[in-house]
């Protein structure tokens, strides 16, 4: 049962930004993540600013350059159902479809999805962990089978829970953020924050800032994309290992590649090692094998998640092989 809060339903973005008066004021959109966090008393909320009536933040439209602009309040279901998205950014549509459950996809927004809080059971549970201002990451010495193998900086080993985020990074999307100081655009790749930078934050959002839309540039000609997720059960589960690919081919050679992992690190994890290996090459068996091996080259598995090493290799191999076939 949630503690009480004051509630502010705004009619404009200006009102929303003005309403975000304290660090403990939270933005309410789909509510699927926030309300659960409040119920679990993970962090307090003195006020919820409901932006759900800001209809301007809803929907998908084409940009002048042939890309897409997705309003932050667009639900994951609306993403999955969008013919334009399916046609130009199939990997993103797949990723949205792999997230959560049908009902949660009907409720949850893309803005909320990229801002969601980690699912680490220590963070979500009654453990005063480092990310909640405590002194200890319980996962390093504890039950870490679902935790990170990259980017932990020996501070916090959450994995970023979002499925769409790695696909958005792969498509080189940009996040538009509005705050008290105005608007800024943040490349998706720089939107999430590693523990080394700030262990109590997951995104670059500052006090008073709201994600308003995500802009997808037009993919290069010949781009193929995919998202593949392995999980412990087939619905309603976060990634044990996920791979988002956006690969532009010229003829049978890779011209440009973006390879991003989910379930791997505290942020969507771009593996430039793999991108470098495949760029300029034909995706033949030997290139794919090298790429698969490079996926986990710098991984640092914990006591209970060593399986992620062969698993990421397997998924990378499987996905690059499928992509080579077209």
């Amino acid at each position: 049962m949630m503690p009480n809060f004051s509630y502010l339903r705004v009619n404009s973005l200006e009102q929303a930004v003005e309403g975000l008066t304290s660090p403990e004021t939270r933005v309410l959109a789909g509510g699927t993540d926030l309300l659960g966090c409040l119920r679990d008393r993970i962090f307090p909320a003195d006020k919820l600013v409901s932006i759900t009536r800001l209809d301007k933040l809803r929907g998908i439209e084409e940009t002048a350059d042939g890309g897409l602009r997705i309003g932050a309040l667009t639900t994951l279901t609306e993403l999955i159902d969008s013919p334009k998205l399916k046609e130009r950014f199939p990997g993103l549509a797949q990723a949205a479809g792999e997230a959560a459950s049908p009902q949660l996809r009907n409720q949850g927004t893309i803005g909320g999805n990229i801002c969601q809080k980690p699912r680490c059971w220590y963070y979500r549970g009654e453990f005063h962990c480092l990310r909640k201002g405590g002194t200890l990451c319980y996962a390093f010495g504890g039950e870490n089978q679902f935790h990170a193998i990259f980017g932990t900086d020996n501070k916090c080993c959450i994995v970023h829970p979002s499925d769409p985020s790695p696909a958005l990074v792969a498509f080189e999307a940009t996040v538009r953020v509005v705050g008290p100081k105005g608007t800024r655009l943040v490349p998706m790749e720089k939107f999430h924050v590693l523990p080394a930078e700030n262990v109590e934050k997951e995104t670059v959002l500052e006090q008073g800032e709201i994600v308003t839309e995500i802009v997808l540039p037009k993919p290069a000609a010949g781009t193929r994309s995919s998202y593949r997720k392995v999980r412990a059960r087939r619905s309603w589960d976060f990634a044990l290992a996920g791979v988002a690919l956006a690969v532009a081919f010229k003829g049978d050679k890779v011209e440009r590649a973006r390879v991003v992992l989910s379930g791997a690190a505290p942020v969507p994890w771009r593996v430039k090692e793999v991108e470098e290996i495949v760029t300029g090459k034909k995706l033949d068996a030997s290139t794919i094998a090298k790429a698969a091996a490079a996926t986990v080259k710098n991984a640092q598995p914990l006591e209970h998640n060593a399986y992620k090493i062969p698993l990421f290799k397997a998924v990378m191999e499987e996905q690059l092989t499928a992509m080579a076939k077209g």
Partner: peptide, 14 residues
């Protein structure tokens, strides 16, 4: 500051 409010929002589908 440019673009605050003016450029946000998709507007078309609602």
């Amino acid at each position: 500051r440019r673009g605050f409010i003016a450029s946000v929002g998709v507007g078309a589908v609602v």
